[in-house]
Amino acid sequence: MNNQLTPTQENYLVAVYELEQENRVARVGEIAKALAVGLSSVSSALRILADKGLLNYSPHNFITLTGEGLSLSRRLVARREVMLDFLQKILALPAAVAERNAGLLENTIDEEVYERLLAFVDFIRTCPRTGDEWLADFRNRWVAGKSQDCQSCMEKGLGSLFCKSEVESGKSVAPPLTLADLQAGDLVQVVALRNAGRRLAELGLLPGAVVRVEKFAPLGDPCEISLNGARLTLRREDAVAVAVEPL
């Protein structure tokens, strides 16, 4: 992440971002309440962030993010969402435990580990040998304490190999639906990112995210989508990398 910011400063920046998303502007008192800190601590942190060009701040006025601050805060939020997604949906940890540890991981792991974690989550969600059923088996074993039916798992694996052989033999298999296949007004949920990596994830396009297609350019490229209350523009080469399912 940005080496010029401490974990505490990153938390302040994210707090301003979240308040802006809710109220369009942030106030010192709201930030203090959100982070459970004193007003003087908030004012001091905001002055530092303003000096770095990340937000607009002066005493007794509203606080807003600059363009650079908005871009960085979105990356920070997306990074935390990746951690939460991994801890809650992959490791099946309780929400409170996942929330607490996501913050710790977010502020300690470096970019190489983050990239590998992002790729691992995508692999688990898209590989035919893993997927939702595989995750359910993990939860049954480690969370519910149920024994694993290895024979059943092996049969499922053989079934996957059979499906693969059908594809290789030339039988018709429907390709996955992507954002590029949709029409304006469609509401979908992201199920996987294919060869997209960090950049799309930092926009919030993570598995489980709900997206509405707003419009396409006259030639179909780019497209505009709504995500988490914000509008984003995607090129076709990015849209085809986002696998989705209708809601």
Rank of each mutant, 00 (worst) to 15 (best):
V190K: 02
G67Y: 04
D85H: 15
K146E: 15
F120W: 12
A92Q: 11
N107F: 01
K171P: 03
R80C: 07
L177Y: 11
E111Y: 02
D85G: 14
F216C: 00
A184W: 08
L105M: 12
E111D: 14
R139Y: 00
A45Y: 01
L182F: 03
I109H: 06
V191H: 12
V42L: 02
L87C: 03
T66P: 07
Q21F: 01
L135T: 06
A95F: 05
L219V: 11
A45G: 04
E10G: 01
L70G: 04
N228Q: 13
R129Y: 14
S43H: 06
L193N: 05
E237V: 05
W134N: 06
L187F: 10
C223Y: 04
T8N: 07
T233C: 09
L135Y: 08
A78N: 11
A241V: 06
P207G: 01
S160M: 12
V82L: 15
Y57V: 01
K89D: 10
C153T: 05
R27W: 01
P94L: 10
S172D: 05
I48K: 15
L232S: 00
T8V: 09
C150P: 05
Q4G: 14
K215S: 15
L200N: 00
F123Q: 08
E155I: 10
V82R: 09
Y12V: 01
C127D: 15
A241G: 10
E30F: 03
V14W: 01
K215T: 15
S73N: 08
T108K: 12
L205R: 04
V97A: 11
D186P: 06
R198K: 13
G67H: 07
V25L: 09
R24I: 05
F162D: 03
N56M: 05
A102L: 01
N228A: 14
P59S: 06
A78C: 10
N107S: 11
K146I: 00
Q21M: 13
M154T: 11
E20Y: 02
D149A: 00
P218V: 00
E20R: 04
C223Q: 14
A36M: 07
G208W: 07
W134H: 13
A239T: 09
C127V: 02
A239Q: 14
S71V: 12
K164S: 09
K52Y: 14
L49C: 09
D181R: 10
L19R: 05
L232M: 04
G38W: 01
L93Y: 13
Y57D: 02
Q21Y: 02
K146W: 08
G69N: 09
Q148Y: 12
R47H: 05
S165C: 10
N228S: 13
R141G: 03
L70E: 06
L219R: 15
S40P: 02
E166P: 01
